[in-house]
Design a protein around this nucleic acid. Structure first.
Lengths: 257, 257
DNA sequence: AGAGTGTACCGTACATTGTACGGCTCAGGT
DNA sequence: ACCTGAGCCGTACAATGTACGGTACACTCT
């Protein structure tokens, strides 16, 4: 990162911003809300790294430093963006716990919804989430996602672990997908063209040593997906496997009960 | 990112560097090897983002631009660092497939080894891995990790998916742990102090709405781990669950056979 | 109505980044 | 002895986040 050291965001300040009511437009109509919205719009297109305070200010027709009246810095802005992105993840109508298919259906629903957010806003992967974990929307999300796991005989810690497992999987897979897309876009090459370009160099260079299993499997994967990875497939394969594993745990718990 | 646009690394150039033999010291003793080593040492301490070309050059007592004689840019340097970090992941003695406990033991071993690398070199999380997937060490790693899944009745694609699932889990969990550590270090606060600092603001602000399940579970987790997450626990919980799920798949396949 | 005050707004300045460009210096071949 | 090419590097530039200090407006109090 360039520029001044960007002194680590003050957690208390972030929290106040996150939960505060920022309904005071000021004399040029500038709002925290408007800033966050503009930033999200820009980040959706180019990523968090490429997003600059100047760009946000320009889009709002406002001096760069005016942003700092409403937001302490880029870090805190990212926190706000993060929380807002999860704003209306679950409308009342589609609460996970009201989904068909019991806990399993609910977790599948949760995974799909998170996947959607993550692919719509790939910059989320660049936000350090640890300190943000307590924004209003995130908390609401946590509550909604935990609910379908309640009353199955799991301990509280197990409930949290199970949910975290699913979410980590979704996030990791979505991240890989986002990276793939960004790499493609940056290089202007499709996955297939890229492969075709490096293939000769590779075979030349790999001729010395050889990798029987890796070669066979890698080729199979490449032919099957026309790419080195297929995020959508990875998502469902992993989710199925994880849910199968969780089913065993839940069964063992309810047997005891 | 600041500075000139850092034009997306040329894949072919990266590949050549990755597989080439760079044993020509030049007149000031500067080597690709030495550069990569220095960069890794610095990144281990401060992360990839904080690592600058100037820092690397200074540590090697060399002008900044001299680095560019050996390495096309920071992106490609990261690629090299990535591949090198996995350099001696598996010595001959401890090939995963020779581990006790069958495929399950092997996958546990693989998970643990990857975890070790990831916690020793947290900057790995910042490297865009998509284009690097084909360095010599990475390929060797892929081969070694695939082998224990061979001959179990899984299709080639399933073998790849199963491995990717485990690795994604390890990586996601390790990333969360790394973020936690970094946040702590940056703020100078331990997780507990941090909690104590924001707790009052939080309870004040959460009094309006309330979150029954989230509150209960969150509290339980906090008390159990003295933190909001415990990466080590998440790792083993997730791994167990995933392996249980994979066991079902493998059983169903060998039943047909 | 007039004076005073706080806050929104913003122009400028600075440190820091990656790297393009062009020059210098030396090893090795002829 | 001289040329050539490659290793080395000093300088310059565009871009970043944000500290600092100033300006102008909305409000309260007299």
């Amino acid at each position: 990162m360039a520029g001044r050291k960007a002194a680590a965001p003050d957690p208390a300040r972030s929290l106040a911003l996150l939960w505060g009511s920022h309904a005071k437009p000021g004399r040029s109509g500038l709002t925290v809300r408007a800033i966050v919205d503009a930033a999200i719009e820009l980040a959706d297109a180019e990523g968090l790294e490429a997003l600059s305070m100047r760009m946000v200010a320009d889009r709002l027709k406002v001096g760069t430093m005016s942003l700092y009246t409403h937001v302490p810095g880029k870090g805190e802005l990212a926190d706000l963006m993060f929380d807002r992105a999860y704003g209306d993840l679950y409308a009342d109508a589609d609460e996970p716990s009201k989904q068909p298919g019991g806990w399993r259906g609910a977790l599948e629903f949760i995974a799909r919804r998170n996947w959607e957010i993550l692919t719509a806003h790939p910059w989320i992967h660049e936000v350090p989430t640890m300190r943000t974990a307590l924004g209003p929307n995130i908390t609401r999300k946590y509550e909604a996602e935990l609910r379908p796991l309640d009353g199955l005989g799991l301990t509280d810690v197990e409930m949290d672990s199970a949910l975290a497992l699913v979410l980590t999987h979704v996030q990791g897979t979505a991240r890989a997908g986002a990276e793939q897309l960004r790499t493609q876009r940056d290089s202007g090459l499709t996955d297939e063209e890229w492969w075709r370009q490096i293939s000769p160099t590779l075979t030349t260079v790999m001729s010395g040593t050889h990798f029987p299993v890796a070669g066979r499997v890698g080729t199979a994967v490449g032919e099957h997906f026309q790419s080195v990875i297929d995020p959508a497939h990875a998502l469902t394969f992993g989710l199925t496997t994880i849910l199968d594993g969780l089913a065993q745990l839940i069964e063992s718990r309810s047997a005891v009960e």
